[in-house]
Structures are given as structure tokens and as C-alpha cells.
Design a protein around this nucleic acid. Structure first.
Length: 248
DNA sequence: GAAAATGTTATCAT
DNA sequence: TATGATAACATTTT
């Protein structure tokens, strides 16, 4: 469910609830959910993988982690919602298996919008600058760094590196300037392709690297390995994805 | 049916 | 203190 573009889709799907007042609250969350009753929804926003519901005096942050899901005007009969928000006319938004938390401060003070690859305020220059400040970071870690590329997840990581022909174990500092620019540009560009494909329910069939066994360019087996700080799955071609780095 | 996975955070060990 | 392994959360797909 996660990755930034999916949250953008959710944000779009709930626009009919904008300005409506929460009438009923339930769910198995341990937060003080009763606070949400009678609150009017000021806006729905997203930052990276965070889905934000802005209310007059505070906001709610929903993070879907790995397994989270939601239903609009329908129930998952087999599951108890983590949080269910009821509105007039039996309208409802149900969140399942996600993390929900309150944010007390105004969310513009909490989030750096220029770091969100899906945001209109995304700032590639700033991303570049921050990348150059950490030359030893592996590119596979850099792409997953939510302070740098908020919204990028493991699928986007693998697809971006394949597109720009960069080996996941390359270091940021060893990339030629043009490659580094490509990395930043493609992180956003692929995310928008992801968004369109996901909307059309054809995301998976457009994967060129993620979960794939064979390189579509070289027709040789991909390498699958758990790389980087977080040991996340990487699928890559050792032939056409160049490894830039001190020892390579 | 086991294993793995689109993710993150807290805690423990070194 | 910093780094890294491990656990925890919880659901769907392979």
C-alpha cells in the first residue's frame, strides 16, 4: 500500500469529505480517538508516505507501514479498523493495520515540503545539495532516505536505479554530476509514472527490475540481494548498471 | 503453508 | 556514543 504515489491517490479519493464534520469515531487504535469527534476536516494532505488529515486545532497522521490499507464507504468485514471515521449519510473512511498519531503543531511547521517527491514544492536543487553533503552514502540508501526523498520506497528505488543504469552499491560521491542529477530527476519522474500506472491498475506490469529475474536489456539474470543500511531487496543487472565507487 | 514483503521505530547488544 | 542486529507491529502474495 505505501510509497508516496499511493498516498496521493488516497488524498484524491477522499476529496468528497473535505469540509465535512466527523460524526462517529471507532477503531482499535490506542490514541485518544474521541478527540476527533465533531472536528471539521480542513484539508487532506500528504508528505511522502504520510497521509495527513488537518483539523482546526490539530492534525492526524496516518502511516500505512507495510500492511496498512483503507476503505472508503465500505468495510473489510473480516477486519477491525484501526480507525473508522463516520460522517453524515453513512459515509465512512476506514483505516486498517496502520499507525495513527496526532500532530499538535501546525503541519507546515512539521514538514519540509521540498523533500516530498510528489509535492509541488519538491526542490531538486536542494536534494542535490544535500546528497553532495554525504558522498559516502550508498545510492540504494540515499533513495530510501525519507529526509531526502520522502515518498520513495523500495519499488521506486529499484526501478529508478535500473532506469538510470546505476548499481545500488554505488556511492553518491562517486557518481558523475550528470548521473547524480539523473538520480534526483528520475526519483520524481518515476514516482509520477508510478502514480499513473497505479491509478490504471497496471503498475506491476510496468516493473522492469523490481521482483524480476532477468534483465530486460541484457537478457541475463538479475542479481537479487539485500543491500544497504536497511537490507532491503535490490534487483539489479551487473552488466548494464554501472557501479561507481571508491573501490569499483 | 511457509516465507517474504511496497515500512518504521524501539530496544538491546557490541 | 555510535552502529548494528533484532523485535515488534500485522496482512497479503508468492
Amino acid at each position: 500500500m505505501p510509497e508516496g504515489p499511493s498516498i496521493v491517490i488516497l488524498r484524491d479519493q477522499v476529496t468528497p469529505f473535505l469540509g465535512k464534520t466527523i460524526r462517529r469515531v471507532s477503531g482499535n487504535t490506542t490514541i485518544e480517538k474521541e478527540r476527533l469527534a465533531d472536528q471539521r476536516i480542513e484539508s487532506f494532505r500528504s508528505w511522502g508516505k504520510h497521509f495527513l488529515i488537518e483539523l482546526p486545532d490539530f492534525s492526524l497522521k496516518v502511516h500505512f507501514m507495510l500492511f496498512g490499507s483503507y476503505r472508503i464507504n465500505e468495510d473489510k468485514s473480516w477486519a477491525v479498523p484501526r480507525l473508522s471515521l463516520g460522517f453524515d449519510d453513512e459515509q465512512v473512511i476506514n483505516f486498517y493495520a496502520c499507525s495513527v498519531r496526532f500532530i499538535e503543531e501546525p503541519i507546515d511547521l512539521v514538514y519540509d515540503w521540498w523533500a516530498d517527491v510528489m509535492s509541488e514544492h519538491w526542490d531538486p536543487q536542494l536534494a542535490l545539495k544535500r546528497l553532495r553533503a554525504q558522498p559516502d552514502t550508498l545510492v540504494c540508501d540515499a533513495l530510501l532516505d525519507q529526509d531526502l526523498f520522502a515518498g520513495v520506497g523500495n519499488i521506486i528505488k529499484n526501478e529508478v536505479l535500473f532506469r538510470i543504469r546505476v548499481h545500488p552499491l554505488s556511492t553518491v560521491g562517486a557518481l558523475p554530476a550528470s548521473k547524480l542529477r539523473e538520480l534526483v530527476a528520475e526519483a520524481r519522474n518515476y514516482s509520477f509514472d508510478f502514480l499513473e500506472w497505479k491509478k490504471q491498475f497496471v503498475l506491476k506490469k510496468h516493473w522492469l527490475a523490481h521482483t524480476k529475474r532477468t534483465c530486460p536489456r541484457c537478457h541475463i539474470p538479475f542479481v537479487k540481494a539485500h543491500l544497504g543500511r536497511t537490507h532491503r531487496r535490490s534487483f539489479f543487472c551487473e552488466n548494464c548498471q554501472l557501479r561507481y565507487g571508491p573501490e569499483a
